[in-house]
């Protein structure tokens, strides 16, 4: 078994390392520049991994450059791997849930309208370019991650900045926000069911990337009508899909939209034990599929 595998990831290495740690298989050992080194929690349970980031559109270049493992959601890279006999791929667990935060009182019945299921399906199928599925409904009042105080919201700010914000650099969140903006013109009724203020913005509605740490806060402070943010289901497994970093759950409606996952692309030349360890690390399966 190689001492360390070179793993190219299209997400932040720290985020991937945290996710692997939450799964209880790996833990962070060292950081060297932009590379994060993780090692198995159980000694000799698998190879150590050196996680370094590549652009989403650079995943195929990483494969061609001979990297051992690529972890990406880029469908083009996955399709490319399928055409290569020397590569194998394995879907990860659904490791990210995209939430829509709207500043409004949460519904006691969960989602505001059954039509949201159709919306979730459409979003998962067409709006994003990664492997996705509709998110399940959320239990009322659950899974709020404590945060610091935020600036009180004002209606004036809402009207002045009719926008849906998303974490800058997150293409999935951006696509979801863009689709919601488009729905403001095409299916305003559906959007009104989600949030009246968002639907009322009409053609003035915009999608705008913000600092990832400020996306949820922007809704609570009145800086945005809504926000699309990703959460990890691993941090609070009891919630089913993760915790939402908001301050006051009574003033913010949290609507799960879709869940996404990535694919682990590995060289078949790796040892079976290494491949099994990787499969255990990223998925619920112990075998890497064809």
């Amino acid at each position: 078994m190689p001492a360390s595998l070179d793993v190219a990831v299209t997400d932040a290495p720290d985020s991937i390392a945290a996710w692997l740690s939450e799964r209880g298989v790996y833990r962070v050992s060292t950081r060297a520049g932009d590379t994060v080194h993780v090692e198995p929690v159980v000694a000799d349970a698998g190879p150590a991994l050196a996680l370094h980031r590549v652009p989403v559109r650079g995943a195929r270049d990483a494969i061609d450059a001979g990297v051992d493992v690529v972890l990406t959601g880029d469908p083009e890279a996955v399709a490319y791997a399928r055409t290569r006999a020397d590569l194998t791929s394995l879907p990860s667990v659904w490791n990210r849930t995209y939430m829509l935060l709207v500043r409004a009182a949460p519904s006691s019945d969960g989602d505001p309208a059954p039509a949201l299921d159709t919306l979730r399906a459409e979003l998962a199928a067409d709006a994003v370019r990664v492997e996705a599925r509709p998110a399940t409904a959320m239990r009322a009042g659950s899974c709020v991650e404590p945060r610091g105080a935020t600036t009180p919201a004002t209606g004036v700010t809402d009207a002045a900045r009719p926008r849906i914000v998303f974490p800058r650099g997150d293409d999935v969140a951006r696509a979801l926000a863009a689709r919601l903006v488009a729905l403001g013109a095409t299916r305003r009724g559906l959007l009104a069911a989600l949030a009246g203020s968002v639907a009322n913005a009409g053609d003035a509605l915009r999608a705008e990337g913000v600092d990832p740490r400020e996306a949820a806060q922007a809704v609570e402070s009145g800086g945005a009508l809504a926000a699309v943010i990703p959460v990890s289901p691993m941090r609070f497994p009891e919630c089913g899909f993760g915790a939402v970093p908001i301050t006051n759950a009574d003033l913010t409606r949290v609507i799960p939209l879709i869940q996404t996952r990535e694919r682990l692309i590995a060289r078949r030349s790796l040892t079976d034990r290494a491949l099994a360890a990787l499969a255990q690390a990223v998925s619920d399966s112990s075998q890497v599929g064809p």
Partner: peptide, 9 residues
Amino acid sequence: HFRNEYDRL
């Protein structure tokens, strides 16, 4: 220019 504007009339 607006990928997710599909289906708009």
